[in-house]
Each structure stands twice: as structure tokens, then as C-alpha cells.
């Protein structure tokens, strides 16, 4: 693809590989992998890091009480490493969003979802059900995201 780059990410243990794509024309550093994205992906993979990330009060505050989550939503996904890890972990529905700048941003998300699901033996039928890509810019009505999450 002329304006979408392909990359490989590997977790700290070196055992889990994720392919991610970036739209080279995305503004606002959307064309780079953010450290926080990699850091969250790593934290989602390890139970002790998950506990630390969600905090001791997560449960009483109505936060994550089950793993994998039934429905997850990533804002400003970009490379969408956390969403890819959530698909691998078995989250029911993963909604990936990014703001509307160009079509490539969403193509890149679909490409990542396709490649990684194939690698993890998630059928195309299952992927279409579980991995949802939606455009979302701050301030827009969130109703469509709630619908996308089922």
C-alpha cells in the first residue's frame, strides 16, 4: 500500500507478535506508534500488570471486574495495539475508533485486524462480529459506538 506502512510489535517476553499498520498521512502523530500504546498492550497481557493498571479500587468504581472484557472500546486507536491484544485475549467485541481524517486511517485498522486474526486462528466470520472499526471524533454523539458494541 503506498500510504500505509506495516510493522511488527513483540511483547516483552518475545513470544507474542502483533502486526500493526499506520497511515502515513495521518495528522497529529497518527503516523507513529505511541509509547503509551505499547505500554498498555503489555499491561493488558499480564495479570499482575493489569491489576496495577486498573488499580485496587477499580472494582468498587465500576471498572473492570471480568477478564477478558465482554465489550471494549479504544479511542484514537492509531496502531490499535491494545485492541489487537484484546482480540487475542478473547474480548467479546472490540470497537476501534479514530477521528476522521482520511480513509487510510480506517483501512490500516482493518488490515491489522485481518492479519492478526488470521495469525491467531480467528475466522473471518468471527472477526467481523468481534472486531469493529468506527470513525469517531471528540464531541460527536457516542450513540453509534454503543450500538457498535452491541
Amino acid at each position: 500500500h503506498p500510504t500505509i506502512s506495516s510493522h511488527a510489535w513483540t511483547d516483552d517476553s518475545g513470544s507474542i507478535a502483533v502486526t500493526y499498520h499506520l497511515a502515513l498521512t495521518a495528522p497529529g502523530h497518527g503516523d507513529t506508534l505511541w509509547n503509551s500504546s505499547s505500554c498498555i498492550a503489555e499491561h493488558l497481557l499480564r495479570p499482575h500488570l493489569r491489576d496495577r493498571m486498573f488499580g485496587p479500587r477499580a472494582k468498587e468504581a465500576g471498572g473492570v471486574t471480568r477478564w477478558p472484557p465482554r465489550r471494549a472500546l479504544e479511542f484514537g486507536a492509531g496502531a490499535a495495539l491494545p485492541s489487537m491484544i484484546l482480540l487475542r485475549e478473547g474480548a467479546g467485541t472490540v470497537v476501534m475508533t479514530d477521528r476522521i481524517t482520511n480513509e487510510e486511517t480506517f483501512e490500516a485498522l482493518e488490515m491489522s485486524s485481518e492479519k492478526n486474526c488470521r495469525r491467531w486462528d480467528i475466522s473471518e466470520e468471527e472477526r467481523e462480529r468481534r472486531a469493529v472499526v468506527r470513525a469517531h471524533t471528540w464531541g460527536e454523539d457516542a450513540e453509534k459506538l454503543l450500538e457498535a458494541g452491541g
Binding site: 465489550r71 479511542f75 484514537g76 471528540w138
Partner: peptide, 20 residues
């Protein structure tokens, strides 16, 4: 949603509350 992810400056507490 059981889980919301926002990697960095995009985090917005208003959304967090509205969507949970």
C-alpha cells in the same frame, strides 16, 4: 462497555463517565 482504552492525551473523563 467493560473497558475503555485511550492511550494518551485523547483521554477525556466526560466520555468515561458517559459510556460506562
Amino acid at each position: 462497555f467493560d473497558l475503555l482504552v485511550a492511550s494518551d492525551c485523547i483521554y477525556n473523563p466526560t466520555y468515561h463517565e458517559a459510556l460506562l
